[in-house]
Structure formats: C-alpha cells, structure tokens
Nucleic acid binder design. Structure first.
Length: 491
RNA sequence: CGGGAUGUAGCGUAGUCCGGUCAUCGCGCCUCGUUUGGGACGAGGAGGUCGCAGGUUCGAAUCCUGCUAUCCCGACCA
C-alpha cells in the first residue's frame, strides 16, 4: 500500500479523495465546492480534450464560444429546462463594489449598482445558444448547424466531490440544429457513439449505451441517450449524455426555417456533453491501493526512466546507454520522462511514479549498462521484466498497447461479473447490496421507478440500446414487462 | 438545505473537558556530509494571525456567539 493512502476496501471514498490529492491531480480551492485542477491532472484532461475535439471535428462540428451569463428572461424561456436547473443557479445581481464606509479597507456591494435584469451564470448553454441560433437560421440552407463549445459551467451543488461533482466544472457542450427530426435523432445517436468509443478505446472504460427513462431525462429533452460506467465500489457513474431536444428549444426561442417548399417549421435540436467528471471515472475505474493506474493513451507520461547510479560519471554512462532507446521512443511519439532528480533514491521514485499511474517504468543501473539490459515494470500488473536494451523500443510500444488492452479487459471483466439478472424483489435487493448493475423487469411507469428508488436508493441507469426483448413481470408491481432495464446505485 | 464530526507550520498531529512559559511531535522543507537496484542516515537550521470575526477575562488554541471550509449521513444532483 502507498504511504498514507487508504485502501479501497477500508474506505473507498477516502481512498478516492486522497488519491486525487496525492497523485497531484486536483485540490480544494478557497471557493466552496470549486477545485483547482493541478498541472498533472490538467494534462490528462487536455489529452481527453484533444482526442474528443478531433472526433467532433471529424464528425463535422466546429467550435464556437458563447457567453458565461444568461439573462434571466432568456433562461426561463424553455420552462422545463429552467425549472430543472433553477435550484442550482448562481445569479449575478450587481456589477460594482465600493468601499465600505463602516469598515476601513473593506469592500461592499454597491446597492446603486443593481442590475435591471439578473444574469444567471450558465448551468448549461441551451438558452443563450438557441437565442443566438434564432438569428442564424432562416432557411433550410442554413442547416444543419453543428457547433461545439469548450466551457465552464456552474451548478450550485449541495454536496461536492473533486471531479465527480463540483460547483464549477469544465466540459464541452455540442448544440446542433437540424431541418428534420430524423437527422437530429441520427446526430444524437452518433454523438453517444462517439462518447462510447472514446470511453472504451481511450479511457479503457467499458460503458453501456442506453436511453434514460423519462424521470432521469435532461430537462427540456425528448430523449436522453447516455453512457453508463461501473466503478470499483459497484456504483454506476453517468459518464456522458446526448439529448434529442425535439423542437422544444426552437419553439421556446422561436427558431423557424423555410423548407424547400417554402413552408415554415421549427428546427430540430440536439445537445451533448461530457465533463471533467470523466476524470473521476478514469480514476475510480482503474486505480488501486498503490495509486493511480492510467491507460497509456491518456497518461501524460507514458514511460518514466529511473537511473540508478552512485557517481555523476555513472549517470553519464547510463544516459549514453539509453540514448538509442530514448530516440526510438520519441520517434514512436511516446511521452517519456527521465527522472534524474538527485535528491531522491530509486525506491522513493518507484513509489511516486506508481502513485501517479505512469504505465511503464524503466530502471537502469550500472549492472544493466554492463549487461546491455534494462528493467521494465508495468503499472497495471506490477510485473517486472529484464529486457535487452537493444530493440526495447519496439517492445515498449507493444507493451503500452498491451497495458491499454489489459486495463480495459480488467474493467470489462469487473463489470461483467458485477452485472446480475434478477427476477424477484428479493433477488433484486440482494444484488443491489452486492453492488453493480442489476438487470430487471420494470413496468415502465415513473411511479414504480420512484418507489424502487425510495426503497433501495437504486435508479434506472438506462434502457440499453439494442436491448433484447423478452416477456417478464415487473419486480415490484408484478405487471407485465417487455424488457429488462439496468438498475444501480449511482454517483 | 437538515443531522453529525472536524479545522493547530506545506501535510499529519498533541494540547481544548479543567483558561496561566503550550504552542507538541512526526513527515516534508533549507544547509553540510555520507548515501543511491523498492519510500536512506547523521548533524545543524528555518517555518505558526492555533479556520475567520466578535465577545467574556488581568490573561484565550482552550470558555461564549456568529461566520466559513472540509468530511460523513440524509435531501438534492437535468
């Protein structure tokens, strides 16, 4: 176990909090519920951003930027959306401070500087964006609009946790407008697939794609698609959503277009997003009691080299021996760090890089230099090997791919062995307590869903896409059901 | 937002009941030396508005009030 890191078994929650801090990913700030994302953590987020951004561009989207503030009158235009977010909005009411006449050196809000209309700090940007789209769209020739923005949003959450739920968070939000319902639905489905592909290929995180039930749906959406992942403590985490908005926002903001036949119609919308919460998913899904385990595709440092030496001359010799290898690794675009800090001994460095989740660690001392070998240690399995230096570059490249695959398979196996099919209420409760996804029949009513939530704290995570149809009876009401849905306790 | 706990150096802590050379210890940090194949060792040194603001008192880390932040439980979380 890493020094000072609680184990997952003893206290999963404390393990997570400590890991985020000790691995230098993020820390609490002076502002309630808001975090400082530290350079090492931000480097991972930047990698995620880069990959996702490329995928958005490949699928025809462009980036733009809309304002942080939403005038209250715009915000309330789409009623359901406004109502859904109302309880967690930060609101700007004044635009100026002044010296406090009663307190030397202190400032106070200037009562004369009250805004005529309050500004809501965006919890999501549909309102500003649809109000803008109104001006951009007249004809079917203006469609589709395929725009994404990388931004921060604020949701005044009561209970926050680093990355998983913070009052301010970073995300991307795609907002598209289409001439037909069919096209908008295709876009919604395309983007949930983009997210699933990213999660599985890059985060090594298996996810279930599915539809949210009506009560779990985004406020203002006709249909919400999501990706759901399973964490090591058996709780589910919603990792991304893609919404088919129907014509709801077009109607609320009066966004109409003239079709080929010159008939006016409201446009069809979608919105989709993933946030820094993905960082939380990444950390919780793979890491162990020694610290972070990062998939090679997202690791800021993929390979770290720890030289073991006594004298400066030894270090020089080691560096010389390493030169061909580092050249090969750089040529293969592998991000590499030589940890030649003189102030720490090798054992300390090993532990530190394990805590930080670097996928591959190389150690090389004078013994290796003489033998032409290098010690290779993989983070995911903790396995150590001694390889010939010559040709090690290619093998390391392959090893990184193996690690990526192994981490994914491990997470997939975990999910598989923690997904249970149940047919009775008794089995259902038992399975939930054991943790993981529980596939059970449900009568399709919000009422039953609510009752189940009250009794077990479990929610319907999703109705999986391509879900097999089979006849059964609802575990609670006993009414007929045509398919199983996935329940879990969730973050 | 309700219930509970906590806040003392960068981190972790003793002291708080019972007010009075009490600001303790460990890690980390700085200097020098020896070390370096799994979290080194010795010697010397620096570092504190005791979460913040009021109050009680001759005197407050300690008692009282308010605030704030964090953690846990609940409500909430499109």
């Amino acid at each position: 176990m890493a020094k000072g890191l609680p184990t997952r078994k003893d206290d999963y929650s404390a393990w997570y909090n400590e890991l985020v801090k000790q691995a230098d990913l993020a820390e609490h700030s002076a502002v309630r519920g808001c975090m400082v994302i530290k350079p090492y953590g931000f480097a991972i987020w930047e990698k995620m951003q880069r990959i996702l951004d490329d995928k958005f561009k490949e699928t025809g989207h462009s980036n733009a930027y809309f304002p942080l503030f939403v005038p209250k009158s715009l915000f309330e235009a789409e009623e359901k959306n406004a109502e859904g977010f109302a309880k967690e909005c930060a609101v700007v009411t004044h635009y100026r401070l002044k010296n406090d006449p009663n307190k030397e050196g202190k400032l106070m809000v200037d009562p004369d500087a009250k805004l005529e209309e309050e500004l809501v700090v965006r919890p999501t940007s549909e309102a500003v964006i649809w109000n803008t789209y109104k001006n951009w769209i007249q004809s079917y020739r203006d469609l589709p609009i395929l725009v994404n923005q990388w931004a921060n949003v604020v949701r005044w959450e009561m209970r926050t946790r680093l990355f998983l739920r913070t009052a301010e968070f970073l995300w991307q939000e795609g907002h598209t407008a289409h001439a037909t319902k069919k096209e908008a639905i295709e876009e919604t489905e395309q983007m949930v697939k983009v997210y699933a592909d990213f999660a599985e290929k890059h985060m090594a995180l298996p996810v279930i794609q599915g539809l949210k039930t009506e009560s779990e749906r985004f406020a203002g959406a006709e249909e919400t698609y999501c990706i759901e992942a399973l964490m090591q403590d058996g709780k589910a985490l919603q990792a991304g959503t893609s919404h088919f908005l129907g014509q709801n926002f077009a109607k609320a903001f009066d966004v109409k277009f003239a079709a080929k036949d010159n008939k006016l119609d409201y446009v069809w919308g979608t919105s989709w997003g993933v946030s820094t919460r993905l960082m939380g998913a990444l950390i919780m899904a793979h890491s162990d009691d020694e610290g972070l385990v990062l998939p090679p595709k997202l690791a800021p440092i993929q390979v770290v080299i720890v030289p073991i030496y006594r004298k400066e001359e030894d270090l020089e010799q080691i560096k010389n021996a390493l030169a061909p290898l580092t050249k090969d690794l750089k040529a293969a675009n592998i991000s590499l760090k030589l940890d030649d800090r003189d102030s720490f001994r090798p054992g300390f460095k090993f532990a530190e890089w394990e805590l930080k989740g670097v996928p591959v660690r190389l150690a090389i001392g004078m013994r290796d230099v003489e033998n032409g070998t290098i010690e290779v240690a993989r983070r995911d399995t903790k396995e150590k090997m001694s390889w010939q230096l010559e040709g090690a570059g290619q093998k390391i490249e392959q090893l990184l791919e193996d690690i990526q695959e192994n981490i994914y398979n491990k997470a997939l196996n975990f999910r598989t062995s923690n997904t249970t099919q149940v047919n009775t209420w008794e089995e259902f409760e038992k399975a939930l307590d054991a943790g993981g996804f529980v596939a059970a029949h449900w009568d399709g009513t919000a009422e039953t869903e609510e009752k189940i939530k009250d009794q077990t704290k479990a929610t319907i995570r999703c109705i999986p896409l391509g879900n097999p149809q089979e006849n059964g009876t609802c575990i609670l009401s006993g009414k007929p059901s045509k398919e199983r849905v996935l329940f879990a306790r969730a973050y």
